[in-house]
Design a binder for these strands. Structure first.
Lengths: 399, 399
DNA sequence: GCTATTTAATTCGTAACCCGTTATAAATGT
DNA sequence: ACATTTATAACGGGTTACGAATTAAATAGC
């Protein structure tokens, strides 16, 4: 257990104040004091330090003063957008997406590289990522020295704490220390995270979970991922691993263990169609799901069947996740949502059937089809969160 | 988020020191300082306060001094066993077990009431529990006024935070505010907890998980429960619910959803035998599992088959839990373990088959067949933990 | 146009906490 | 008996948070 000293105390309260300013837009000190339950005096001290460090700014102009309100007007405080810049990236098998954001998480530039990568050695991927990051930074009119931190989201099993990618469909090798590799290449602190975790925090900051401090997100892409938000923080299992939902067992079939990915993985859904040359080409280019969508619209029976099987498998899995975590909301994201009604309806039906009666109505299912930028923005949020937490010891204890 | 003030700081460090003393037996101040990484001066201040409050005692006599060690000898500190007494209880369908423990968790008296309860109204159960607690306290040579706190463990879904029992096989009603009921009846603070959570903390304090700060426990009794220890604390889902593993879905069968309890619940295993009058009687008396054990030894094919099916279902479920949490150890407890080899072997086989290759060897499976006292002692540990955490504001800030 | 009023934010003083250093206490070894 | 070694206790410094009083900046009323 970490020992509690004044430094920790200050770090906690600072983070609390900073996060309150981030979440509740331009906000006066008094309101911060009310929300955080810190005394006005403490809030003044902390905000003074934050102002001194340039992390926040007073907002003079747009004082939307309630008329008929007497007294000294409140001065609103807000994040200083230019206090830091980070890069967020989403690395997937068919494309890479990068965004540069400011301290508020506003996207300054984005870059999508539609490159197919599949079980490549570390050097190849590092080359591509390095190139993407550098270009995206230039597009934002910045140089790498202006970037404070980089966070990259990967499919598969990622150990955030150590920076290792334990296993991922885009890497040839297992246990790749990718964070260290990129940190040295870019000479900028770089962290890695599971793509599911990244978009989970993204939804908490910018998306469909801004109002919640607990929720669960399930990502349905090439790999099937899980993100759990618990008390406004990402719940990373023992050791910071992000595990592979696709490995979950759905039962015993005639041919042995039936795992989720064999029913609902991207290749399981699309794989049956490999015979068709045009479709195979679309898959190779990362357009598999949109192509599949078109085929489903055209009443392709085989694909509709695959989509329904996948939806059923995912619905059962969600029911199990809800049984374990009982979150107020489950957000579903990922390319498989593009399969449309056959998939979604059978998912909903299976979920309704499988959710235990006692938990009926506890969790709300939300489908979100944000673009890949949003995943990258989520990765940026992970990077920003770590900056928020870091002591920034500039205006330390009394100069 | 809780605001950080000196009081919180002190509470954290106090808990840290107190817990170190609890875990590492008689221990000197210096060793406490080394383990907690608090300065010796802080440790001295905190231990002085703890001594003042009577929570710990210096140990003069058994100074097992290393000879050839010069200098002032260390004085070992240990918990004051008599600083508090708590009652822990395990309430199950076929029996209730109570223990009274001292501040260290040592059992002062225990009492088992072999009473069958099944979907009773709150009043009936409250009568029985009240009687059991009172008798157990008297057996310990104490009066209820000497008892500082009571914790009761129940099967089913228990909301620790609010004191409600959401659903339990022994209650006729759902959403019973049992903590409040017993608190008024006994005029002693009473909390409720899932039996699985109770024995999880029990294993952390006294049992097979003393060396770990993360682990998972699965309880196989009438209901199937889950306990997760995360960073030395019980991980209670959003809202403090403890959910019912039995509701987990194992797949779709010919007759619809197949849930774990339909394969591995006590009644699923034993239920097929109801025809036999003697066995039915044994089940009614809560001796079902031991009777089943005897039948299995006698090569009863139907029961062996049921046990193997159950073991397989549990093995798959454990693999899924490990996929999600990746704990270093999984502890299995509960009456179903008494089924013996057919159950355990098929469990192990199914687990080995179902665990994803990447997680092979990450988790160690441990089977524990502690008696019911141990569950009750775990409940006592839950009560004690809350006492440890409470401010004890006696020797507050400067008299 | 001036003063009273109201509300926001800061300043000052107090209390609590942790830490590093120095002093005291209690043993052993010579 | 005296030096040596080691464990605690005592003291002073620095940081933090909080409450009360003070200053700041606006409106309302005459």
């Amino acid at each position: 257990m970490k020992t509690a000293d004044p430094e920790l105390m200050r770090a906690i309260n600072r983070l609390n104040v900073l996060d309150t300013i981030r979440r509740h837009g331009p906000i006066s000190r008094i309101e911060i004091s009310e929300r955080t339950e810190l005394s006005t005096t403490t809030v003044s001290a902390i905000t003074a330090s934050l102002l001194d460090d340039g992390l926040i700014l007073p907002r003079h102009e747009g004082d939307i003063r309630n008329e008929a309100v007497r007294g000294r007007p409140r001065v609103a405080l807000e994040l200083n957008p230019d206090a830091a810049r980070v890069v967020g990236g989403k690395i997937a098998a068919s494309r890479m997406v990068f965004v540069v954001t400011n301290f508020r998480g506003d996207v300054l530039s984005k870059l999508a590289l539609p490159i197919r990568i599949d079980r490549q050695p570390i050097g190849v991927i590092a080359d591509l990522v390095e190139d993407g990051v550098r270009r995206c930074v230039v597009d934002a009119g910045l140089s790498l020295e202006d970037v404070d931190s980089i966070c990259l989201g990967f499919p598969g099993v990622v150990e955030h704490r150590t920076g290792y990618i334990r296993s991922s469909p885009i890497f040839r090798d297992t246990n790749v220390d990718f964070a260290a590799e990129m940190s040295t290449r870019l000479s900028t602190p770089t962290i890695v995270e599971s793509d599911a975790h990244a978009i989970t925090l993204g939804h908490h900051w910018f998306g469909r979970a801004r109002d919640l401090e607990d929720m669960v997100l399930i990502s349905l892409e090439q790999t099937l991922g899980l993100g759990v938000l618990h008390g406004n923080r990402l719940f990373r299992g023992a050791g910071g691993l992000s595990h592979n939902l696709g490995d979950l067992v759905l039962g015993m079939g005639p041919n042995g263990i039936v795992r989720l990915f064999s029913q609902a993985g991207e290749s399981a859904i699309l794989g049956e169609q490999q015979a068709d040359g045009r479709f195979a080409e679309a898959i190779r280019l990362g357009r598999g799901m949109t192509h599949a969508q078109a085929l489903i619209k055209a009443d392709d029976d085989r694909l509709i069947g695959a989509a329904m099987r996948a939806g059923e498998a995912v619905g059962l899995t969600i029911a199990n996740i809800v049984t374990l975590f009982a979150p107020p909301r489950v957000i579903l994201v990922g390319s498989s949502l593009a399969l449309g009604e056959p998939f979604l309806n059978s998912l909903r039906d299976a979920y309704a059937l499988a959710i235990p009666p006692s938990l009926k109505g506890v969790s709300e299912l939300v489908f979100d089809d944000s673009s890949d930028d949003f995943w990258a923005q989520g990765a940026a949020a992970v990077a920003l969160y770590e900056l928020y937490e870091s002591p920034w010891s500039t205006t330390g204890p009394a100069l």
